[in-house]
Amino acid sequence: MRDEYDAGSTGPRLAAWLEELGLADQLAAAGLPTFERDLGGAVVWRDPGTGAALTPDQVADLDRVLHQDGDEPAHAVPLALVQLRRQARVRAALLASPWHTYASLADVRGGSENAARFAVHKAAERHALLVVAHDGGTLVPAFQLTDAGELRDELAPVLEPLLAARMDPWKVWAWLTQPAGLLGGLVPHEAARDPEEAAIVRHAAVRLAEVARA
């Protein structure tokens, strides 16, 4: 097997290229073959389904796939992996911001965990609360809540069109908490607090929802 991945072969070159771009960690998330290095530094690419080592022809096919974006294959960047990397960074930033589980929300509301779970599910069904699935659990981003753990009144008409359009909850969370181009760089959930900006935020949410539906 080592002969198939000598220093001049496609396998090591492809691995080094992806490492240089910082995209190696996104291969598995994209459902693509991944690679490993043995103690001697040799690169072995493995099939995502079977774990079997790829043949040189299979590595060459993967190389062509990853270089297919752009007019100059030699200088192409695998855009799908770049997008996955950005998505991973955005999610990490969102997860670093305050959010609630059913238990922590129950503490804020002064009720039981079961009551909080039921209330969250009912509000989500009405498109009146943003909930995000993560690692088999449910997160309730805290930015949308008052100190008492209830939805901020000014965000109800902003959330409703986005959630009704079945927009990805992670994208809703990101759009509401980061500077938005549709708002000239304002952060939507912060701008919604200002009565003079609230109507503009609602309009931007409706436009974004329309794009999501399309």
Results as ranks from 00 to 15, higher is better:
79 L>K: 12
83 Q>C: 01
85 R>Q: 11
86 R>N: 09
86 R>C: 04
87 Q>S: 08
87 Q>G: 01
89 R>T: 05
91 R>Q: 15
91 R>L: 03
91 R>F: 03
92 A>L: 08
92 A>P: 02
92 A>D: 13
93 A>F: 00
93 A>Q: 11
94 L>W: 10
95 L>E: 10
96 A>M: 03
97 S>A: 15
98 P>I: 13
98 P>F: 10
99 W>V: 03
100 H>V: 09
103 A>L: 06
104 S>Q: 09
104 S>D: 11
106 A>W: 05
106 A>V: 06
109 R>M: 12
109 R>V: 13
110 G>W: 03
110 G>E: 02
111 G>L: 05
111 G>H: 10
112 S>D: 14
112 S>F: 08
114 N>S: 14
115 A>R: 14
117 R>C: 06
117 R>W: 09
117 R>S: 15
118 F>I: 13
124 A>H: 14
125 E>V: 11
126 R>M: 08
127 H>F: 12
128 A>K: 04
128 A>M: 03
132 V>H: 05
132 V>W: 07
134 H>F: 08
134 H>R: 02
137 G>N: 09
138 T>Y: 04
138 T>I: 15
138 T>R: 13
139 L>S: 06
139 L>K: 13
141 P>M: 04
141 P>S: 05
143 F>T: 11
143 F>K: 11
147 D>I: 03
148 A>T: 15
148 A>P: 00
148 A>L: 10
149 G>M: 04
149 G>E: 06
150 E>G: 08
150 E>P: 00
151 L>V: 15
151 L>G: 11
152 R>S: 10
153 D>R: 14
153 D>A: 15
154 E>F: 01
155 L>T: 08
155 L>M: 08
155 L>C: 07
156 A>F: 03
157 P>T: 09
160 E>T: 08
162 L>A: 02
162 L>R: 01
162 L>I: 02
163 L>K: 01
166 R>W: 00
166 R>G: 00
167 M>V: 00
167 M>C: 03
168 D>Q: 07
169 P>F: 04
171 K>S: 13
171 K>P: 00
